[in-house]
Write a protein that binds this DNA or RNA. Structure first.
Length: 649
RNA sequence: GCCAACUUGGCUCAGUCGGUAGAGCAGCGCAUUCGUAAUGCGCAGGUCGCCGGUUCGAAUCCGGCAGUUGGCUCCA
C-alpha cells in the first residue's frame, strides 16, 4: 500500500500500481471527468501515471495553469495530426502551449490560407470526435532517431540529437499520429471540445533568423464552448482599444507615407498630452534633486566608439554621409544619437568630481533616433524617433542601493500617477553567461553586480521574474514591462546598473583617500518614452485619458447663439484656472454637440442655456456619469480643479 | 530583415465574369435658434497607394516598390 497526500492535506491509502485516474475516480466521478492532469510531488504528469510510492497529489483541472497547459498542448497535437492528415508532406517542428493558447510550426511547400485553417479545424473536430487516447511510450535514443528518420521528420531528428545523452525520450501516440514530446497530455483527444485556430504567421526554426522560416499556426482552446466565445469576444473588445486606431480617430497622431516608417506626426492633442507629461516629469525630477541637461542630437562617431555602441549597434544608427567613407579613419562622420548616455556623461566629465559631489543625478527630455528594421515598427510603441525621460546617476558603491531605490520609487510614482501601476510586471534582466560576446566586462564583474541588484530588488520587495540574456551590454536591468492590446509585451521603464562605461569614458571621482575611483552609473527613465507611454495610456483608457492628462478637459456647449457671450465669459474664467477648454459655437442641436463631445471623450461638457446664463450656472455633464445637473460655475471650478490637482483617474 | 494579409474621396466601407467608380459619416451652402449621444434639403469631393506589364480596354489580372497590420527575429 502507498500513502497519497491530497491537496486538502488528507492522506489516503492505495495499492501500489494505482493510476492517478483511479485515484480521481475514487474521490468522485465528477472530479475524474474534469481532471486533465496531476501534479505529483510538484511535477505535472498525466492521469495515466502509475503511482508506486508515497507521494503528494494535486489533481489539475482547466482552472489551473498546469491543467490549461496540458489541455492546450494536447490541442496542438490534435492540430498537428489534422495537418498531417490533410497535408502528409508537412514536416513537424515544435508545438507548445503558450499563454493564451498554443501553436505548431510546420515546414510545408504551400502557403497556409485562412481557408486551410477552416479545413484544418474541421479535421480537428473529427479527431476530437474519434476520442483517441494519448499513449505515452519511450524509446532509446538510436531507435527514436531511426523512427523519426523513417517518418521523414528532420526537425524531430534534430531535436532528439540535441537532447542530453541521459534524457528520457518520450513519444505520444494518438491514433495514426505520433509526436516526440515530453508531455504531459490529457487522456484523450475527446477532451478538446472548444478550440479555434486564430492566425497564421512565419517563425524561424529555433527562433534564429539564419534558419529557415516555418509556418506557424496559432490557436486557442478552452474546456467549454462559452469560455472560448468569451475569450474571442474579449480579444475583439481589446482590439477596439488599439491606440493605433483610436489614437488616429481621436486626432492624437497621424502618419504620412512620404515622411517614412516609424516617424509619426503628433497632432495638437497628442502633443499636448506629451507636453503635460514632460512638464510633470521634469518638475518631479527637479524636486528629487535632478539637474536638467540639454545635449546635442548628433555627434561624431568617435563618441560612440568609446562606449562600444559604434561596434555593437551601428546597423541601428542613422549615420550621415557616404557609407563608403565609414571605414576611413580620417573621415569626419556624424551619427544621430541612438541613446543619451555618452552625451550626458560629458556633463559629468566637464569637471573633476569629488566624493562630496556624489550622488549626481542628471535628467534630460531626450530625443533619440534608432534605425529599427522595417518589420519592427508599431504605431507609437516602436518608432524611429522618440523622446524619452532620460537620466543618468553617478554614485559611490555605498550609495548604489539608495540611488537605485530612488529611481525605482520615482518610476512607481509615475506609473501610479498615470494609472498604469496595476498593469505592469517586473523583469530582472541579466546577461547570458552562454553568450559572453554580447557583453563587455568579466564574469566576476557581472556576477557581483547582478548579486547586488538582486539584493536591492529583494529589499524593495518587488515581485520580479528573472530573464537571462535581456541585460544591456554594459549591465543588468530592472525592466518594467507592459502588454499592449494584442498581448505583446514591451519595456515601458528601465533602471540599469552600469559598472563598465564610467571606466571607458574616464569618469572618476576623487574619494576621501585622495584616490580616483570609478562611480557606478545608473541609467534610468522615469516614465519611459513619451510616445510609447501615450500609446499605452490610450489603450488603457480607450482614449478617455484621466482628466489631468486630457488634451481638452471641458467643452462648452451653448444651446443657441444667444448664449455665446456668456459661454465666452465661462471659457475665460475656466482658462484663468489653467483649464483646457473648447467651445462649440456651431449652429447644431445640443444633442448633436453632446454626441460629438462624448465621442471625443472630453471629461466634462457644460451645457449652457438661458437658465444657466440667468443664474451664473453651468449644466454639467460627465463623460462617465452623464448629466449631473446645473451647478454654480464656482462650484464646478472647485470640483474640476480638485480632480485635476489630485490626478483623479 | 523574414512570413502573410491589406491599401478605393478626410473617415468607414460597397464595387459581381476585366467595359472606365458608389454609399454613409465628415466638409461646404441654405433653411432651422433647438435642453443632454446624429434636424432637413442641396453642393462639392476620387488619375481606386506608386511604377511597370498583359489586354482593344485594368480599381479588378501579373510583376516591382512604398505604406499599414499581425507574427518571427531585433530592441543600446
Amino acid at each position: 500500500m502507498i500513502k497519497v497526500t491530497l491537496k486538502d492535506g488528507s492522506v489516503k491509502e492505495y495499492e501500489a500500481g494505482t493510476t492517478v485516474m483511479q485515484v480521481a475516480e475514487s474521490i468522485s466521478a465528477g472530479l475524474a471527468r474534469v481532471a486533465l492532469a496531476a501534479e505529483i510531488d510538484g511535477e505535472v504528469k498525466e492521469l495515466s501515471t502509475v503511482l508506486d510510492k508515497d507521494c503528494s497529489l494535486n489533481l489539475l483541472t482547466f482552472d489551473s495553469e498546469g491543467g490549461k497547459h496540458a489541455f492546450r498542448h494536447t490541442a496542438s497535437h490534435v492540430m498537428a495530426q489534422a495537418v498531417k492528415r490533410l497535408y502528409p508532406n508537412a514536416k513537424l517542428a515544435i508545438g507548445p502551449a503558450i499563454d493564451n493558447g498554443f501553436y505548431y510550426d510546420f515546414e510545408i511547400d504551400k502557403t497556409f490560407t485562412s481557408e486551410d485553417l477552416e479545413k484544418i479545424e474541421k479535421e480537428m473536430e473529427k479527431i476530437v470526435k474519434e476520442d483517441l487516447p494519448l499513449e505515452r511510450y519511450t524509446l532509446p535514443r538510436a531507435e527514436a532517431i531511426k523512427f523519426m528518420e523513417e517518418k521523414g521528420e528532420p526537425y524531430k531528428v534534430e531535436l532528439i540529437r540535441d537532447l542530453p545523452e541521459d534524457a528520457t525520450i518520450s513519444f505520444y501516440k494518438q491514433g495514426d499520429f505520433t509526436d516526440l514530446c515530453a508531455g504531459p497530455h490529457v487522456p484523450s483527444t475527446g477532451k478538446i471540445k472548444a478550440f479555434k485556430l486564430t492566425q497564421i504567421a512565419g517563425a524561424y526554426w529555433r527562433g534564429n533568423e539564419k534558419n529557415k522560416m516555418l509556418q506557424r499556426i496559432y490557436g486557442t482552446a478552452f474546456a467549454k464552448k462559452n469560455e472560448l466565445e468569451e475569450y474571442l469576444a474579449m480579444i475583439e473588445e481589446a482590439k477596439k482599444r488599439d491606440h493605433n486606431k483610436i489614437g488616429r480617430e481621436l486626432d492624437y497622431f497621424t502618419t504620412v507615407d512620404y515622411i517614412g516608417q516609424g516617424l509619426p506626426i503628433l497632432m495638437p492633442k497628442g502633443a499636448k498630452v506629451i507636453q503635460i507629461l514632460q512638464r510633470f516629469v521634469e518638475d518631479e525630477e527637479e524636486r528629487r534633486g535632478y539637474l536638467l541637461t540639454k545635449t546635442p542630437f548628433m555627434a561624431k562617431r568617435e563618441l560612440y566608439k568609446i562606449s562600444g555602441h559604434w561596434d555593437h549597434y551601428r546597423d541601428g544608427m542613422f549615420v550621415m554621409g557616404d557609407p563608403k567613407s565609414f571605414e576611413d579613419p580620417n573621415a569626419e562622420i556624424f551619427a544621430l544619437r541612438p541613446m543619451t548616455c555618452p552625451f550626458q556623461f560629458q556633463v559629468y566629465l566637464a569637471h573633476l568630481r569629488s566624493y562630496r559631489d556624489l550622488p549626481m543625478r542628471f535628467n534630460e527630455t531626450s530625443t533619440l533616433f534608432r534605425n529599427e528594421s522595417s518589420g519592427e515598427m508599431h504605431g507609437l510603441i516602436r518608432v524611429r524617433q522618440f523622446t524619452i525621460s532620460e537620466g543618468h546617476l553617478a554614485c559611490m558603491p555605498e550609495q548604489l542601493e539608495e540611488e537605485f531605490a530612488g529611481c525605482v520609487n520615482l518610476a512607481l510614482f509615475m506609473l501610479k500617477a498615470v494609472g498604469l501601476d496595476g498593469d505592469v510586471s517586473y523583469r530582472f534582466s541579466k546577461w547570458d553567461p552562454n553568450d559572453k560576446k554580447k557583453y563587455i566586462g568579466t564574469e566576476e564583474q557581472w556576477n557581483e553586480v547582478q548579486g547586488r541588484m538582486r539584493e536591492i530588488l529583494n529589499d524593495l520587495k518587488i515581485p520580479y521574474t528573472e530573464a537571462d540574456g535581456e541585460a544591456a551590454f554594459y549591465g543588468p536591468k530592472l525592466d518594467i514591462q507592459i502588454k499592449n492590446v494584442f498581448g505583446k509585451e514591451d519595456t515601458l521603464i528601465t533602471v540599469q546598473i552600469d559598472f563598465l562605461l564610467a571606466e571607458k569614458y574616464g569618469m572618476v571621482y576623487v574619494d576621501r583617500d585622495g584616490q580616483k575611483k570609478y562611480p557606478y552609473v545608473i541609467h534610468r527613465t522615469s516614465i519611459g518614452c513619451y510616445e510609447r507611454t501615450l500609446a499605452l495610456l490610450i489603450e488603457k483608457y480607450a482614449g478617455a485619458l484621466p482628466i489631468w492628462l486630457a488634451p481638452v478637459q471641458v467643452k462648452l456647449l451653448p444651446i443657441i447663439d444667444k448664449q455665446h457671450g456668456y459661454a465666452k465669459k465661462v471659457c475665460d474664467k475656466l482658462q484663468s484656472y489653467g483649464l483646457r477648454v473648447e467651445t462649440d459655437l456651431r449652429n447644431e442641436k445640443i444633442g448633436y454637440k453632446i454626441r460629438e463631445a462624448q465621442m471625443e471623450k472630453v471629461p466634462y461638457m457644460l451645457v449652457i442655456g438661458d437658465k444657466e446664463m440667468e443664474n451664473g450656472q453651468v449644466a454639467v455633464r460627465s463623460r462617465k456619469e452623464g448629466d449631473l445637473g446645473p451647478m454654480p460655475l464656482d462650484k464646478f471650478i472647485e470640483k474640476i480643479t480638485e480632480e485635476v490637482r489630485n490626478r483623479v483617474l
